[in-house]
């Protein structure tokens, strides 16, 4: 922004004052709206909770009304899901929640290199979880199909919905990494990183429930 003095010449002092005033306004606006944006983001997570709850209650209803569970298809009962692999895949996702928290703490402590290491680790663990989920789909027990029975329909819908959330989270993490390295966030302004951490924890917590419902119960 060109700022001219009363003599018509660009004034470095006035320019600096204008820039500082501009950033001061941004800071003030950030402080004013941060809690509102955070509240809005938590409302979004709660709305997502409602979405998952509706599918989970549908699963519970179908399970309660089925004579046997897993259901019998063509005279054969569908096998159980692989608990050992499910546990391994779950801990990969939970581990990514811990690394994401480390990433945010590193950013708060102005440790950019550590932040990059932790957020990239989180992204890779998220991708590993998705690959694990893909392996689960390809090696699902016989009879467990999308349209064949209630078990398959609820399993693929709920884990697919969750997988979509993880995929969106991975994309979000990549965007956050790029933004953070381009200087979008500072030591005191990092709402996007806070929101990203909350989202990733939320995705982890939803998986705790799905793991119990589909693998352990």
């Amino acid at each position: 922004m060109a700022v001219e003095s009363t003599f018509g010449q660009p004034s470095p002092l006035l320019e600096r004052a204008a820039v500082e005033a501009r950033y001061h306004n941004v800071d003030a606006l950030y402080e004013e709206t941060r809690d509102m944006r955070l509240f809005g983001f938590i409302l979004f997570l709660l709305a997502d909770c409602v979405l998952f709850s509706s599918f989970i209650f549908a699963y519970l209803f179908l399970r309660a009304s089925a004579p046997t569970w897993p259901p019998v298809v063509n005279g054969t009962q569908i096998g159980r899901l692989d608990v050992a692999f499910g546990a391994l895949n779950s801990i990969v996702l939970f581990g990514s929640g811990v690394t994401m928290h480390f990433a945010l703490e590193s950013w708060k402590n102005l440790k950019t290199r550590a932040f990059n290491v932790w957020i990239v680790t989180t992204t890779l663990l998220g991708i590993a979880f998705l690959l694990g989920q893909a392996h689960e789909y390809t090696s699902a027990p016989a009879g467990l199909t999308w349209s064949g029975n209630a078990f398959g329909a609820t399993y693929f819908t709920l884990t697919g919905l969750h997988g979509f959330h993880v995929f969106a989270g991975v994309c979000y993490l990549i965007v956050l990494t790029i933004q953070a390295n381009r200087g979008v966030y500072t030591g005191s302004k990092y709402f996007g990183l806070t929101a990203g951490t909350l989202y990733w924890h939320f995705v982890d917590v939803i998986w705790v429930l799905l793991f119990v419902l589909f693998y352990l119960w």
Binding site: A87, G97, V98, T194, D204
Partner: peptide, 25 residues
Amino acid sequence: GLDATATKVLLGLLVIGCFVVFFAS
């Protein structure tokens, strides 16, 4: 703060998830 409260709840649930995986394993 609101973000700290949400983080505490979510981290608590994450710890429970780790217990679940421990007992499953």
